[in-house]
Every structure is written in C-alpha cells, then in structure tokens.
Design a binder for these strands. Structure first.
Lengths: 133, 133
DNA sequence: AAACAACCTGGAGCGCACTCCAGGTCAAGG
DNA sequence: CCTTGACCTGGAGTGCGCTCCAGGTTGTTT
C-alpha cells in the first residue's frame, strides 16, 4: 500500500482547512506525529486527512478546541481511557441533538415569517406583515 | 390590555439573556425604542420579550449580529424593504438546513465511533478501537 | 436618614479560534 | 547561479460576541 503523502498546500486543498489552521491544530495537540520530509517540510498521510475530517466534523458541531485536545490526549494515553472518551462522545451527542432541536425551532420560525411575504414580488400593500410573531 | 412592563432584571430572567447583553443589543440596534421609566430605567414590554426570543433563535442558529442589525434596519425602513428581508430569511433558511446536514453527519460519525465502545464498562481488552474511521 | 440593591452611561477588556507577519530555509525552473 | 515560490518557526494581531468596570443616580427597605 503506497502511503501517498501530501504537502501542506495539498492537504489544505483536500480538507478545506487552511495551512495556518493545520499548523495551529498541530501546535495545540489536535494533530500529532505529522511526518516530515528531510527538508523539514510536513508530509500529511491519508490517515491525517481522515483525522482532520473528524476534527472538523466535531468542531463544526460545537466541540471546543479545548475538548478536542482533551480527546486527543486521551487517545494518546491508550486503551484505559476508553470510558472517558466514550463519555465525551455521548456528551457531544447530546449537544448535537439539542442543536438539532434549536435548528428545527428556527426553521419553524423562519417559515412562519416567510409565510407573511408574497410568493412573488407582488404589490407590497397586500402584505400585512405582522412582526415579532 | 395591560401592558405589563419588565425591569431589566425581570427581562433577563424571562429571556435568559443577560442585562449586559440586552444593553449591547440595544446599542447595536437589535433592540429599539425600549421604554423608560421617569427615572431613566428601562421598561421592557411583552413585544420586546418576543422580539428577543426571535433574535436569540436566529443568533443561536448562526446569524451574525451584523446581519441581524441589517434585518432590523430594514424593518425600521418599512414595507418597501420586504423583498430584501424575505431574501435574508431565505438565505438563513439555507444556512440552517446545511447546518442540519452537518449535524446529521456528526451524529452518524459519533454513533459509528460509539459502536466501538462496549455497552457497559466491561473488560477493556475486548474492544479493538479503530481510530480515525 | 442610612444603607443597600438595582439601574444608568461610556468605554475598556476578554476568550475563542483562528490568521497574519517577520525573517529565514529549501527546491525546482530558466 | 539566480529567481521564485512553497515552506519553516515563534510570536503578535484580529474579529466576534459578549462581559466587565468605574463612577454616578434612583428606589426600596429598615
């Protein structure tokens, strides 16, 4: 299995995460053991790509950098930290579900408000737009 | 209909928004025409409560303060801004739906990862936790 | 009337998650 | 060789959304 390695620029393209952010993640411990070329330049593996996608998925749904670092620390510590990692995931799962509830409420509100606007840009006078409702 | 007015502290209790944040919203134009007692102290109306709930709903789902202010500006300008306000709501609706997609992806990822942990804190050796997947 | 809480204003400060910068190294093309 | 551009490090800067503070007024309780 040829381990295709990516330059920082390529990694940034693949993941949609900027080079600066990749370095920031490395500094703060979210990315570890990134390979280097002899020149000292980083070389990212396919596993790194997958891991960054996991990180982004959790970040984008509200897990803090602090918590992600904790999660990484636990992973590095080995098997006996499984229970705590599981707990973190379960906690985050709850957060995600509560966010989904928020989003559903927001959709309802938006649709309710949109229902006061005419379907096509018709005469404005026809619309009695009840605000704050 | 008695217009029950609320003190800042009461308003904060009702909406879950701190007094400082309520003032901040007023400064930045998200809250307007807040009544005052003769003393100069604010008195919030029931409509203000509803409006803050709308603001929070939009804020919590990712609309920026900047955009919210724009939305308020348009509202203050009157009926002829209806089209733009409608557009803002439609744009935000799309944002909300894309966030829901993100959350669903996250839920899948989390559940996938959780599936590698034993149901009850059993012997750790039994779990071959494949990371980065 | 004295004490204490709640409120006022203008402005400064904070935490998060990046993002940018200076000053230097490395490497591929002409 | 020389230029050009991608990369390196350590550290400073940024923008957002609040949050806090100083110094003063108001209003209620004892």
């Amino acid at each position: 299995m040829s381990t295709i390695e990516l330059t920082p620029a390529q990694m940034s393209d693949r993941t949609g995460v900027t080079i600066d952010t990749l370095r920031y993640y490395e500094r703060t411990g979210l990315l570890r053991n990134i390979a280097r070329a002899e020149s000292g330049h980083r070389r990212y593996s396919q596993d790194d790509v997958l891991w960054v996608e996991v990180l982004r998925c959790l970040r984008d749904t509200g897990m803090s950098i602090e918590q992600l670092r904790r999660y990484c620390d636990l992973g590095a510590l080995g098997e006996q930290t499984g229970a705590e990692r599981k707990q973190m995931l379960e906690d985050h799962r709850e957060l995600v579900e509560s966010q989904m509830a928020d989003l559903r409420r927001a959709l309802e509100l938006i649709d309710h408000k949109l229902s006061f606007y005419p379907a096509r840009p018709a005469n404005a006078a026809a619309t009695k737009d009840r605000e704050k409702t």
